[in-house]
Structure formats: structure tokens, C-alpha cells
Design a protein around this nucleic acid. Sequence first.
DNA 1: ACGGACATGTAATCGGTTACATGATTAC
DNA 2: GTAATCATGTAACCGATTACATGTCCGT
Lengths: 179, 179
Amino acid sequence: MSLRHALLGLLAQGPASGYDLMKLFEISLANVWPATQSQVYAELGRLAEAGLIKVSAEGPRGRKEYAIEEGGLAELRHWVTEVEPTAIRRSDMLLRVFFLGQVHREQARAFMRRRAEASGELHERLKSLQDIVARGDDDLSVYGRIAMEWGLRFSAMQREWAEWAENEIARGQEGRISS
Amino acid sequence: MSLRHALLGLLAQGPASGYDLMKLFEISLANVWPATQSQVYAELGRLAEAGLIKVSAEGPRGRKEYAIEEGGLAELRHWVTEVEPTAIRRSDMLLRVFFLGQVHREQARAFMRRRAEASGELHERLKSLQDIVARGDDDLSVYGRIAMEWGLRFSAMQREWAEWAENEIARGQEGRISS
DNA sequence: ACGGACATGTAATCGGTTACATGATTAC
DNA sequence: GTAATCATGTAACCGATTACATGTCCGT
């Protein structure tokens, strides 16, 4: 139930409407916790009902601005520091790796080559995003930079792994695998 | 809809019952695609109805052994080689990083220290698992090793990142962040 | 005889995705 | 006037989780 905490986290930086929050998701959290519009509005309703946030202002077009309450801040801090992050992570990429024995060895190598390529592209994309992102020493910059660094290291690691793997598969020589 | 392909992948290695498949999940795919018992039985029913697998034998206690069909193999191979793996990955760990500005700097450092620790433990756990896993040159060993290598590199990368991050936070000095 | 493993299923609930639906305000 | 943007909501569906429910076979 992390969408709830993503919303609390954004509201902790200041009041916002559902519409504002959607835009914030798109620019800041899109890569770590994507959310859809229907989801955001529904969860805001639940959060308000639970008393963790409240409608702080109403504007034109039925705009409702929400502000975080003390209970919401407490819940956010508790979740950040005391709830252990999820350990297991589904990966349909690694799932495919397990079944690479079902295709020709050359196809398996092409799979790895493509993975290396995609990771390289991600790495470049993040690097150019990094240049745009604020380089200040405020909280958001410090922690945003730390999250960004994870992405850079991850994409680099995955690219190197895929290249290593392509090579590893080649060592087994050509021909058909199984069947 | 990857559970479907996980099942096809396992059945591609040979016929099995729902019960067998559950055990296979636990030992081999638990870390990349966990599945529950109810899910497995339900999906087997759907796969059989779609003609991608069929009941190949019936045994005691209502045991139904499933075997993969040609259509199932084709679907599996198509999914492995031609369907692009999911790019975005949710991470409630990184989501927490974004909101670390909401807690004391010392708590943020403790968070990173704990992450480094957990990644180190994961790394060790995988290393000992590696020693147990078959070291042959058959398909499953080759590709199992490649997936394992990903885990080793990932956990190492994450540990190094967390240590770097803990340091990075320290550079901003002590005291309260925001609020 | 009995316990543990084998074996299959259903029901309720939840979080997430996609699509649909509607309307108000503002800038040009 | 009108198009873009602002703004909120509902409904159907899907995959995954948790809990419940039931019964059989095998080894000792």
C-alpha cells in the first residue's frame, strides 16, 4: 500500500490538489512509483476519510486542495524509518533468462545484446535527466541525487552483466538448445 | 501476465502437476516470480482451456499432470524473444529515499546503513546458494548461473550505493531536516 | 491408527490499469 | 468563439494475496 505513502510524501512538501499530485508523479516519481489518475483521486478520498490529510482549500472547477495532517506526517515517518522495504522483486526479464534454454543459442545471445543496449539507453537517459535536475543542497536535491545515483549504478551494472552474459552464452558454442 | 509464462517455462522442462509446480516455484523462481497456490491452479485451468497445455495423466488423489502443447511452446518462445521486458520497476525502497527529508538526518543515515546491511546479507545468501546449485554445462545450469550472477552483481551494487549514500548524507551535517 | 505429505479447489479482498464520462475556466 | 488546460470522478476488469475448505494416500 505504497501509493498512500507516496501521496503523503508529496503532500508533506506542501498542499496540492489531485491534479497537482498527478503532475508531480509524472515528473518526480514516475520511475519509482507510477500512478494513474483514477488511483490518485480514490486514494485521496480514503486518506481524507482516515484523517491523515484534509481539504485545506477549494478553488475553481471544483478544485480541492489537500494538506497533510499531523497523523499523516506521523504515518509517513513511521513508514520511512520503521517499515522494512519489500525484499523480493518480480522481474519478468530474469524470468525470461531462466527459459532461454527454450530458444536457439543465437537468439539467447541477441536477447542479452538487447538488454545491454536497453540498459545503456536508460543510463544515458538518466544522465541527461541528472543535468537538468537541481544541483542545490536542499533536502529534495540531496535525496533526489541519491535516488538518481542508484539508477545510474543500476543501469551500468545491468549493462555490464548483459555483456558478460552474452559472452558466457557464446562459450557454450552454437546450435540448438533442447527439444 | 507473466505467471502464465512462468508455468509454460516450467512445463517446457517436462510434465508436472499443480502441486509439483508449486514446489518448483519455491525452489527455483521464488526470487524472480513468486506465486501462490491458488494462482497456480487457476492459471493451469485457463492454460488448459486455451489449449496451451493439456492434462497428460491422472494420478491418485485427483492428481492431474499437465504437459505443454505445441501452441504453448510457441507462445513461450515468442514471449521470451519478442516481447520487450517491462522497463519501469516499482521500488518502495527508492520511494522512501525521496522522502528521507522528512526525518532526522541521523535517521536517514541509519536507513542507508540498514540498506547496506540488508544488501550484504542478500549477497552472502546468494553466494551460499550458488555453491549448492548445479555447476554443470546443461541449459538450466548455464542460464541459472546467469540469473544468479545478476543477483550477485545487484546486491553488491546496492550495498556500495547505500554506503556511498550514508556518507553523502553525513556531508550535509547533523540536525533536523524540514518541518 | 494416525500423522504428514499430497493434492485440488473456492471466496473475499486489494491494488492497479484502462476506459469512460463530464464539465469549468482561462488564454488567445 | 474556441481550444487547451484544469479538474474530478466512476466502472469494469485483471492479477495477486490471504484465508478457507476438503479430501486422499502412504509410511510407520
